[in-house]
Amino acid sequence: MSTDAAKPVAYRDALNQALREELARDPDVFLLGEDIAGFDGAFKVTRGLLAEFGPERVVDTPITEAGFTGMAIGAAMAGLRPVVEIMTVNFVILAMDQIVNNAAKIHYMFGGQASVPIVIRMPGGGGHQLSSQHSQTLDAWFAHVPGLKVVCPSTPEDAKGLLKTAIRDDDPVIFIENEGLYGKKGPVGGPDDLIPFGQAVVRRPGTHCTVIAHSRMVWVALQAAEELASQGIEVEVIDPRTFRPLDLDTLAGSVRRTGHAVIVDEGWPEYGISAGLATHLYEACFDWLDAPIGRVNCADVPMPYAKNLEQAALPQPADVVAAVLANIGRGVA
């Protein structure tokens, strides 16, 4: 690895590298979204790409999520590889008909005649006092739908490598970033380093309890792991990275070794990612579990504005510490 490649890169710049490299590699790739060209994107992920690739390939759209998402799906049916930026996950709700009724179903419904090689990128998550309509985590909405692939990168390396894989994939990929991670720095791979879907990664090895976390929650879980280590408890933090496909082998393998599992999910607790993962793990590991699976989720409320309430609603490292201690029967002193 060259010195340049080893240099830490911010998550937003890692995404930018992936987009730049794929735009340069494949003329069928183009970007569209609100304020992504002249304004460089609301989170500056597309910075500089307009100047480099021109307005035909880096397209500012009107504020019309259903329309431009559907248009990109149609363009993908014709063989182009559009990468759509939805400014935040909150606005994708306007485009759900296009994503669920069209993108997810076209390949199956028409007997495999047409594929939809589209990537729909968007950041989710809360923590910036943006209140209910700008702080949601809707990963589960997409993970529920057959025909979609769902990717939630937690590190700059994954952001780049998984986005490149997503762009080259022939199916619709929902690529969920996190507003709290754009400034996170770390190493990234080179132009040919693709990260395959369906491979979970162990972020920290441990023996006492498996902690499963994705996106920004990986970092919350790692902070909790540090705290627990100081108490002599070694948790294994695993990041699934993709939910469709899901690498259940790695998750279940770890849970069978530790006998304990805690799932940390920034989404709501009811019928969501943590609920789905827990079901998989009960089915796969029931006889190995020494305690019911623990879950740490966003509170089951619309996100409040007030800072103290927002922090109380979001999963914090202390919540994870408490959940692990409860799970392994040590309790909180």
Binding site: G67, F68, T69, G74, D97, Q98, N101, I106
Partner: peptide, 20 residues
């Protein structure tokens, strides 16, 4: 390029085919 069951939902697809 298909018949679609959601009223109005196929129009953006037609627009995308024009875009392509």
């Amino acid at each position: 390029y298909g018949g679609y069951g959601i009223v109005g939902g196929s129009v953006p697809l037609g627009l995308g085919l024009a875009y392509a």
